[in-house]
Computed example of a mutant assay.
Amino acid sequence: MTRAELTDSAMRSMYDLMSRTIAAKSTAEIRSFEYYRTFWTAFARRGQGHLYCVMEDGRPSVGAFVVAYGRRDTYKDGGPLTRCSWCGDSHLVYGRPSMTPGPRV
């Protein structure tokens, strides 16, 4: 698992993972890309949000946006590839204490 720079390309990859996951597993509709970009960017600018991913064959197989508040981090958004060679990848983004370094707000 690595922390990804919050670039437009990374956010679009994350959104793509999320939208494919929702389409495959739910009847819910995903919010617009602009909603997520605005949220992720605002939290990242304050140092309270970071994008993490697990790479498989040179591309993200799991993405997670983590929000820090107080002494805790919370998984807010994410999604795995719907078909991956090792589908335990999503477990790599859970259970990590203080994934977000820096001051706590």
Results as ranks from 00 to 15, higher is better:
53 C>F: 08
32 S>I: 09
68 A>G: 10
48 Q>C: 11
56 E>Q: 09
32 S>E: 11
50 H>A: 14
62 V>K: 05
31 R>I: 02
52 Y>Q: 03
55 M>E: 14
57 D>W: 07
43 F>D: 06
56 E>I: 01
39 F>M: 14
65 F>K: 00
69 Y>E: 14
36 Y>F: 15
30 I>G: 01
54 V>K: 08
50 H>R: 14
41 T>S: 14
33 F>A: 07
56 E>G: 01
36 Y>G: 10
38 T>P: 00
58 G>N: 13
57 D>G: 06
67 V>G: 01
37 R>H: 08
40 W>I: 02
38 T>K: 10
42 A>D: 07
58 G>H: 11
70 G>N: 01
28 A>T: 04
53 C>T: 12
31 R>C: 06
40 W>R: 00
51 L>Y: 02
43 F>T: 14
63 G>N: 01
64 A>Q: 04
34 E>M: 04
54 V>C: 10
68 A>Y: 03
65 F>E: 00
60 P>D: 02
43 F>N: 09
48 Q>T: 00
69 Y>D: 14
42 A>G: 03
36 Y>R: 07
55 M>T: 11
40 W>K: 00
56 E>M: 06
67 V>K: 06
57 D>K: 11
49 G>V: 02
30 I>M: 15
33 F>Q: 05
52 Y>A: 04
67 V>H: 15
56 E>K: 05
53 C>N: 05
28 A>P: 00
42 A>Q: 11
45 R>Y: 06
44 A>Q: 08
44 A>D: 14
49 G>E: 05
31 R>N: 06
34 E>R: 10
50 H>E: 13
48 Q>L: 15
33 F>C: 04
30 I>K: 08
36 Y>V: 09
41 T>C: 05
61 S>T: 07
58 G>F: 10
56 E>F: 02
29 E>T: 14
45 R>T: 12
56 E>T: 03
41 T>F: 07
57 D>P: 04
48 Q>I: 01
58 G>P: 07
37 R>K: 14
54 V>F: 05
61 S>M: 01
69 Y>A: 13
32 S>D: 13
61 S>L: 02
32 S>P: 11
50 H>N: 12
51 L>R: 00
36 Y>W: 09
52 Y>R: 01
52 Y>N: 03
41 T>K: 11
35 Y>A: 12
70 G>W: 03
70 G>P: 02
47 G>F: 06
42 A>Y: 10
58 G>C: 08
63 G>S: 11
63 G>P: 00
68 A>S: 12
47 G>P: 03
60 P>M: 01
36 Y>A: 10
57 D>Y: 09
62 V>G: 08
41 T>E: 11
48 Q>K: 10
32 S>N: 10
69 Y>S: 10
42 A>S: 11
35 Y>L: 13
35 Y>Q: 13
43 F>L: 15
49 G>L: 05
70 G>H: 03
40 W>M: 15
57 D>Q: 12
42 A>M: 07
51 L>S: 01
39 F>K: 08
43 F>K: 08
48 Q>G: 04
61 S>P: 01
39 F>P: 02
59 R>A: 14
35 Y>G: 06
63 G>C: 13
54 V>N: 05
40 W>G: 00
37 R>F: 04
54 V>Q: 04
61 S>H: 01
38 T>Q: 09
39 F>I: 15
66 V>C: 07
34 E>A: 15
30 I>L: 15
46 R>F: 06
55 M>W: 15
57 D>R: 12
60 P>G: 03
41 T>L: 09
66 V>K: 04
